[in-house]
């Protein structure tokens, strides 16, 4: 008569509360649908807190992001928010950068202070990205209130050195969906840089990729979200298959419960995102990134309960 609340996860080697995992998937999927981030930087630590081994948490999270980003990409595609051309170029850059990043992390580990550098990079990156986005969006929101002019109209005010630089690059290409003209080199190089950082930090890189698309590629926020999800889909397919083969750490049952929750959340998120103004979206994402940064910083400063940690995970 009663619905079973617990399920045993054979790869994680633990039983979990199905409702809690489903709810966690739904909440992170909602954020993923709104902001176009994979949510790995939130999901993996929460799964570890629920008793899932770190390596299994990270790998199974990638598996569930495959489902959530499929659902999110579909929702954004229907809304006309996926720039496939840009997504594929970023992806190619990301794969090359990711491969390079794996080698960098091997060298860092051999030098012996990899964890220190990873943690510092993480906090600085989150702080910089979150802080910049927050301040920029706040200014834009204030401007909107006073002048009633759209943020897009106010942008051409500064034909900066950066704008002249990117216009001067060779192999210019039209990205119709994003409404921009750029050199092919831009998404390839920036995708590569994000790939390097993501590999070093052990995350999907959505929360770095989104600001890169907004500020460096100057894509409209709504197209950024859909395109980011499209790109994350492929990154996570690669991670899921590699982790299954090399480490046997993908718990499919865990991923399936998470992804049913997160796919539903992503659909709702995409609809909420559509109702929000680009600057509102940016300021909310910036707040989220800053909260994660503060949480990480607290983790680095506060005395841990246990002075040992399992290897692996984010």
């Amino acid at each position: 008569m009663t619905i079973p609340l617990h399920l045993y996860l054979p790869i994680a080697g633990n039983s979990v509360n199905v409702a809690a995992i489903f709810g966690l998937g739904g909440a992170v999927g909602l954020l993923s649908g709104i902001f176009g981030v994979g949510g790995g930087f939130l999901m993996t630590p929460l799964l570890i807190m629920m008793g899932i081994p770190p390596t299994v948490a990270a790998a199974s999270d990638s598996n569930q992001i495959v489902g959530a980003s499929t659902s999110g990409t579909l929702a954004h595609f229907r809304l006309g928010n996926v720039d496939f051309k840009m997504g594929i170029l970023l992806l190619v850059g990301g794969v090359i950068g990711g491969t390079l990043g794996v080698q960098v992390i091997k060298v860092l580990r051999a030098l012996g202070n990899a964890d220190f550098l990873i943690n510092i990079t993480y906090v600085l990156m989150l702080g910089f990205v979150g802080g910049y986005m927050f301040l920029e969006s706040l200014q834009a929101l204030r401007k909107n209130k006073t002048t009633a002019a759209s943020s897009q109209e106010s942008k051409p005010r500064k034909p900066s050195c950066y704008a002249r630089f990117i216009q001067g690059l060779p192999w210019q290409m039209e990205f119709q969906r994003s409404g921009i003209r750029l050199s092919v080199l831009m998404p390839l190089v920036l995708g590569g840089l994000v790939g390097v950082l993501a590999a070093i930090m052990g995350v999907g890189g959505g929360f770095i990729m989104v600001p890169v698309m907004v500020y460096l590629l100057r894509m409209p926020m709504h197209v950024v979200v859909g395109t980011s999800l499209f790109q994350i889909l492929f990154t996570c397919i690669n991670v899921t298959i590699m982790q299954s083969i090399e480490n046997h750490t993908v718990d499919f049952v865990l991923a399936l419960i998470l992804l049913i929750g997160s796919s539903l959340g992503a659909q709702i998120g995409a609809k909420i995102g559509k109702r929000l103004h680009g600057d509102q979206l940016k300021i909310l994402l910036a707040t989220l990134v800053l909260v994660v940064m503060v949480k990480m910083l607290w983790g680095l400063l506060a005395h841990p309960d246990v002075l040992l940690a399992y290897t692996g995970g984010h």
Binding site: N63, Q64, V66, G67, A68, S69, T70, S71, G72, L74, A75, I237, T240, I241, S244, V250, F252, A255, L256, L259, I260, S263, L264, Q267
Partner: peptide
């Protein structure tokens, strides 16, 4: 695991 995740995501979509 990947294919089922994609199908589940598409199904819900």
């Amino acid at each position: 695991a990947t294919v089922i995740a994609i199908l589940a995501g598409l199904g819900i979509g």
